[in-house]
Nucleic acid binder design. Structure first.
Lengths: 339, 339
DNA sequence: TCCCGCCACTAAACCGGTTTAGGTGTGAGG
DNA sequence: CCTCACACCTAAACCGGTTTAGTGGCGGGA
């Protein structure tokens, strides 16, 4: 069956196609009666304006892009994207927008990706995730004139539209929790420090300790992967004076760390307390259940999408208020060993 | 800067825009010299045909859709999609196609999603994942006339284009491995049996045991989530004669199971052997490292994309040959307890 | 009574490609 | 010398919407 077009609706309603367009974009210039008649006719015919044609004439793509630049290996276990995308989608679909996904392996390709998306006009805006400290992408996107929302903790330059849950309160809560339990040698297994969210979590850990007047424990840089988390843990435990608590920058690393401790016969939380970040589904189902930091990733996605659409339409930014990340205390944290 | 259009190129090359189109779709009717001149001019101007306009005139969307219908909660920890999407994308981008993503919470919404994607003409085809036994979607898509590729183990009706790694060999390998180790009470924690991949893994487990002449151990239906995996494990261990080995339909459930065993002081693999499915990154980093079944999900995504594009273009299907899933033996499996 | 302005609406141009129906120039065949 | 076919290219229609310029009718003020 050949789909209906605006012409069919116009003919059926006895008006010009211009009128149909006016009715559907509820623009002034039609009598209420005519408007209603047109809408009714369209409903009857089951007609809906074609995004393809609309996109061409309004010179908009009616889609936004998300480029995931991690190697698939790292991507595999990432619990963040599916939830984030769910939130994004729920907002986009309300406005007739679609989400275009790209996955590239190399960071070089990522630039190309944005370039192509932009000058093929496939998207009207993009999300930028996994920002690096000194990332070139904001500059690139500015040059391309492509609206972009940075997904992640706030940046130094506040004028760049970033939407994100500040991870500081989450990490701070974890550190505070450990301090309360009497720990004084609190280590950190960080994400890559060249990444903004790796760096900001490390800073939060460091700042919280400083505020409490407790000397900073050792910090090892890892890359959010289980492998690296395990290696970092081994290094920490091999220290002459190993920490009594480790704050990990991700659940994945924390779970790997848990397993390293177990394999060495180190009791968690008796001899070692461990906290994760992200509150993966699995966190509650490892042994012992992992204390972690949970944030509302879906709401975050929704907020980011809303902001991006505002940017595209050059509308005023509505303030986003996301709940701060919350510490979920489980059994991987306990009183500092007394010896 | 205003982007260039086909008209600019035509003018610059001193030809009509029709000629430019011919050159770019390398269609006959141009002398090699002219063709080359046009392409050179375009290259110089940095012009590339606009998918928007192309989509309108060829009546194609130049995009395909993927609808993820799981509740975000289940989606969160799913290691499948990111890799799969990476594979899909790598194939699509070669052909100027884009991937449109939708996430819906309810299965009812999923139908709506496909309907909308189809009759808004947003996509030329879709992937169908997480197929149910007696799923209505194939019928719906057939009715809509929307090309679709089912992602998952092969279906009863072979004429429906399905691309997937048959999970039978993987599960069979796991069961065979356990049998070799002397296990005779081998249980299964299944995915939802109303889902094709839940069902097919259960069947594979059952069939392999039958072929070996070993009586079927208990089978508990779960839903691929960690929570359900843990509950199922508790049930199995509470049996008067608990199994000595459990084959899980997913790593997530297996890891949760591992943790249940640990919390009860049951030694894995001394008293209980455990296998997962999917070979998540974490599998190698839990305690003990999990024996699991790995498949080439990226290659799978690539194959599915290739098939879908063929379907859309009404081309002949090139045979897909994906490596069968392979058993990765780690330390969660060992000889059956002797008592 | 005439003119002006406004409302409701239509006709046509436009977005940027593809595609089809010609149109021109050249060489071969009769 | 005329015709015909063919190779090469152009002009214009088309995809399905949006948008702008313009038209007809009607009420109100002078």
């Amino acid at each position: 069956m050949p789909r209906h077009t605006i012409n069919d609706v116009a003919r059926a309603a006895g008006v010009s196609k211009g009128a149909v367009s006016l009715a559907f974009n509820n623009r002034p210039g039609l009598s209420p009666a005519t408007r209603e008649r047109i809408l009714a006719t369209a409903r009857e015919l089951g007609w809906t304006p074609s995004p393809r044609a609309r996109a061409l004439s309004v010179s908009r793509a009616l889609a936004v892009g998300l480029v995931m630049a991690r190697p698939p290996e790292t991507l595999r276990a990432d619990p963040f994207f599916p939830s984030f995308i769910a939130g994004v989608e729920s907002e986009l679909s309300k406005h007739g927008y679609a989400l275009l996904l790209q996955v590239v392996d190399e960071h070089d390709d990522e630039d190309q990706s944005y370039r192509r998306l932009s000058n093929e006009g496939r998207v009207d805006g993009v999300f930028v995730t996994d920002l690096f400290v000194d990332d070139v992408r904001p500059a690139l996107l500015a040059e391309l004139g492509l609206p972009a929302v940075i997904v992640g903790p706030a940046l130094p330059e506040p004028y760049w539209p970033a939407v994100g849950v500040d991870d500081k309160p989450g990490i701070a809560a974890a550190v505070a929790h450990l301090l309360e339990l009497g720990h004084t040698r609190i280590a950190h297994v960080a994400g890559p420090l060249e990444m903004v969210h790796g760096c900001s979590r490390r800073d939060a850990w460091s700042a919280t300790l400083a505020e409490a007047g407790v000397p900073e424990g050792p910090c090892i840089e890892a890359d959010f992967s289980a492998e690296a988390g395990a290696a970092a843990t081994r290094n920490l435990l091999d220290l002459p004076e190993p920490p009594t608590a480790i704050v990990y920058a991700s659940d994945l690393m924390a779970i790997a760390g848990l397993s390293v401790a177990a394999s060495r016969g180190i009791d968690v939380p008796g001899q070692l307390s461990i906290t994760g970040y992200e509150d993966t589904e699995l966190a509650a189902h490892v042994q012992p259940p992992l204390t972690s930091v949970a944030s509302d990733v879906i709401g975050w996605g929704r907020a980011a999408a809303r902001r991006l659409l505002e940017l595209i339409d050059q509308r005023e930014a509505t303030p986003v208020d996301l709940p701060p990340p919350a510490l979920v205390v489980r059994r991987s944290t306990g009183p500092a060993p007394t010896n």
